[in-house]
């Protein structure tokens, strides 16, 4: 290319080639890891979802057959039960229902607790107690839920007996139409610790003189929350909501611990993660189907990850 064909003056520009080289060298390790562990599995799954597999070897190309089969599979989407609003509705709708209930609940509970604890004595201990659930392995949370909802020894049923609701006592994790909500509550308990922590630090970041100024300006407690606190913690809300959605999308251990690989009786609380696990690790092994379900998860998560990454 000659200089006459260079209207932008690219070749006149002072490009520091040494610096550019150094930047590239420093990027190689990170990009390599990213390529091996992120890009390659995604591309491989997309490709692999068009093949029938024998264990880990692709056997023959079937095009979109596996995709069509998967979406017609009642374990993934059960159209009949969705119309009746009855469980099991399939892993995908159940996972989405989980999201719709879980995310607002854990977000508002987290904000509420953060506000409640913000100027309370002993707030550190209280915060630690709430956050403890988030630090606990989710498998353990699932086991704890088994105990909590146990019909004989469970504290939840014990509570019902104490307040005189003897008739409501049951094994909450075996009730097809209720067990899903029982598990969601457990998930909310975990995620609330996380959202509370984010909100607490966001609240601590608000200049106290802003709230004092609003008080002097005549704003009531509610107006101070609506006009000052809420707009200032909004960016955190976006993070909390999206992290919550991604967390629910990846949910696995709680469900597995509470109901085994089938996701409770008849799969009434099966989720996408469980479907991937079942297809890939239990007989008959259907590797293509596992990839399709995993890709569905990925497609739901991608725009959220993109949004988070674009935030200032």
């Amino acid at each position: 290319m000659s200089l006459e064909n260079d209207p932008d003056g690219w070749f006149d520009r002072d490009v520091d080639w040494e610096k550019l080289k150094a930047i590239l060298v420093f990027m190689v390790p990170g990009l390599t890891l990213f390529a091996i562990f992120s890009v390659y599995p995604m591309v491989y799954s997309v490709g692999g979802s068009f093949w029938v597999w024998d264990a880990f070897d692709p056997m023959h190309f079937v095009g979109l057959d596996i995709w069509v089969e998967t979406f017609q599979d009642e374990a993934v989407i059960n159209w009949d039960n969705i119309k009746e609003l009855e469980y099991p509705m399939g892993a995908l709708p159940q996972n989405l229902i989980w999201m719709v209930i879980h995310v607002p609940l854990s977000t508002f509970l987290g904000l509420g607790l953060a506000l409640l604890f913000s100027d309370l004595r002993g707030r550190r201990i209280l915060r630690s107690m709430v956050f403890l659930a988030f630090t606990t392995p989710t498998v353990v949370i699932g086991l704890v839920l088994l105990f909590v909802y146990d019909p004989q020894a469970g504290i939840f049923n014990e509570l019902l007996r104490t307040i005189g609701l003897e008739g409501q006592v049951r094994n909450w994790l075996q009730e097809p139409q209720l067990s899903m909500y029982a598990l969601i509550l457990g998930g909310v308990w975990v995620q609330t610790g996380f959202s509370m922590l984010l909100y607490s630090s966001a609240l601590a970041g608000i200049d106290p003189s802003l709230l004092e100024s609003a008080r002097v300006d005549g704003a009531s407690r509610y107006r101070r929350f609506r006009d000052i606190i809420w707009p200032l913690v909004k960016p955190v809300t976006a993070v909390v909501v999206i992290m919550g959605m991604i967390w629910v999308l990846r949910i696995f251990a709680i469900v597995y611990a509470a109901g085994g690989p089938s996701g409770g009786p008849n799969g009434v609380y099966s989720v996408l993660g469980l479907e991937v696990y079942q297809s890939a690790f239990s007989h008959p092994i259907e590797y293509g189907r596992a990839m399709v379900v995993a890709l569905v998860e990925l497609f739901i998560a991608l725009p959220m990850a993109y949004y988070i990454a674009r935030m200032d």
Binding site: D207, S209, L210, E212, S213, A214, R215, V216, D217, G218, A219, S220, D227, I228, P231, L232
Partner: peptide, 20 residues
């Protein structure tokens, strides 16, 4: 009385303008 009921106005050292 609460600040709101005293009809006082206050200017803070760091101005305390609502950033949003």
């Amino acid at each position: 009385l609460a600040p709101a009921d005293r009809n006082v106005a206050m200017v803070f050292q760091n101005y305390a303008l609502y950033p949003h």
